[in-house]
Design a protein around this nucleic acid. Structure first.
Length: 429
RNA sequence: GGCGGGUUGCCCGAGCGGCCAAUGGGAGGGGACUGUAAAUCCCCCGGCUCUGCCUUCGAAGGUUCAAAUCCUUCACCCGCCA
């Protein structure tokens, strides 16, 4: 990443075109401020052991700013993660223990770091943890030095609070969240001259509260820019599947599943997702849009999206592997024609189970249940009954069907399929 | 602290002594059509050693031949009044 002369207007226009601009404080002033390298931050609270694809939206915006020559700070919320942000939540959350949050902080710090450049000359990225300045502060100091600047009247008026007052109520703990986030902005302003905070559109209230605090305490000024929450065409929540969120951690969402998630994007969303997630230029994306409209069946745009993101989040090697695996397993060719090495590497990406050589081979139902692709044997039985059960891409029937020795490709592997696209592997050992 | 209302399967929500593994909707799954897409149509959707059995309706006891449904206690939530 080279430190370019910031083209501030172009940067903001590009964000708008990508649908990454929700609102900002005085836009003209922001554009003018961005004509010089500017320090900006986004906060990530450790609410899970990994970030998910929803977090990736804003994280990549931070990266866009760095590419444009600005200095990004990724703030990991070691302190705020202990409190819980009420924004966008209809209920009070249960608190995680300090040990758990501390462990998550470390993991998220490592994750976030992958997307930023710490060696850039002039605009190297910074990772900070708000526990560093929150932990040493006593409750009395906090109330006198910070709390004194907040009006409860204004705090109550915040959307995140008022919606909770009407609903299930809010604890003093979560109510205080906005004060902590404001304090973060103030601290980053003091330490790094950070003058811009980015966040999801639900963060607007928290961000401008921070600007107020900076004005009152330091007579300083700064800016806020929010990013729309990503919406899907069908109204369902982005980044969630039946199995849960799509995580960036390969242990939590396998690279294979990650690639498949993007490849299976709804046609109506794929161009928007390219704009949001991809670093391709406007003209490149418009070319993909054209080819997608002309021949959607080819799914060129889907593939470009899946490839770029899998390469970015995992690596291009891993991306090649999982794509090759999918090609082999979904391909038109006979599975039996694949050589052992190709088959082995393709199956390595799938959920799996093993069978010992000397022992009797369990039924298809038992094998599928063992891979974890279904929740129960009853579910596996239903699949067979409904005609969605396949062995080596050949439909099977009969609830007590069991593969034979000869069904194992290369003498070692069998491929179970549930429905159109859910695959699992059995290995004979 | 007082009075009233609530707690049902992944979510919302019916049921208010037997016909209840429990209506309906959503989510999810399978099939057909397609492109590992969407829409549409059909089917499924607690578990199991599956013509039957087992465990569920906040928790624990009790009444009854029989309870998600009645009684008692406890926990949590939500109103109104102090």
């Amino acid at each position: 990443m080279t430190s370019a002369v910031p083209q501030s207007k172009a940067l903001i226009d590009d964000l708008k075109w990508r649908g990454l601009f929700s609102q900002s404080t005085d836009e003209a002033a922001l554009v003018s401020a961005l004509s010089k390298p500017t320090t900006l931050y986004i906060g990530f609270d450790p609410t899970a052991p990994s970030l998910h694809v929803g977090n990736l939206v804003v994280l990549l915006v931070l990266r866009r700013f760095q590419i444009a020559g600005h200095i990004p700070i990724a703030l990991v919320g070691g302190a705020t993660g202990l409190i819980g942000d009420p924004s966008g939540k209809s209920e009070e959350r249960s608190l995680n223990t300090t040990d758990v949050v501390a462990a998550w902080v470390e993991r998220i710090r490592a994750q976030v770091s992958k997307y930023l450049d710490f060696g850039a000359t002039g605009n190297a990225a910074i990772v900070a943890n708000n526990l560093d300045w929150t932990a040493p502060l006593s409750a009395i100091e906090f109330m006198r030095d910070i709390g004194k600047h907040f009006s409860v009247n204004q705090m109550l008026a915040k959307d995140s609070v008022s919606s909770r007052l009407e609903g299930g109520g809010i604890s003093y703990t979560e109510f205080s969240y906005q004060v902590l986030q404001s304090f973060d902005f103030l601290e980053l302003y003091r330490r790094f001259n950070c003058t811009l905070q980015l966040g999801g559109s639900d963060q607007w209230g928290n961000i401008v509260a921070g600007l107020d605090l900076i004005r009152r305490v330091e007579s300083g000024s700064g800016h806020a820019l929010t990013i729309p929450l990503l919406a899907k065409a069908d109204g369902s929540k982005f980044g969630k599947t039946a199995g849960g969120a799509i995580w960036l951690d390969p242990e939590m969402t396998s690279p294979y599943a990650f690639f498949q998630y993007w490849l299976n994007t709804d046609d109506k969303d794929v161009i928007n997702f390219l704009k949001v997630f991809s670093f391709k230029s406007k003209s490149e994306i418009e070319a993909l849009e054209k080819s997608h409209n002309e021949n959607p069946g080819l799914r060129e745009a889907h593939r470009a999206l899946a490839r770029e993101l899998t390469s970015l989040v995992h690596s291009s090697d891993i991306c090649d592997r999982v794509e090759a695996a999918a090609r082999a397993l979904f391909g038109q060719g006979e599975l039996s024609e694949l050589d052992e090495a190709t088959l082995a590497s393709a199956l390595a990406e799938l959920p799996r189970t093993t069978v010992k050589k000397g022992e009797p081979i369990p039924t298809w139902v038992d094998l599928l249940a063992a891979t974890g692709v279904v929740d129960s044997k009853s579910a596996a039985r239903r699949i067979v009954k409904e005609g969605g059960a396949y062995l080596n891409n050949v439909k099977i029937s009969g609830e007590d069907f069991a593969p034979e020795k000869s069904d194992f490709l290369c003498g070692k592997y069998a491929v179970l399929r549930k429905g159109k696209r859910d695959l699992a592997a059995v290995e004979l050992i």
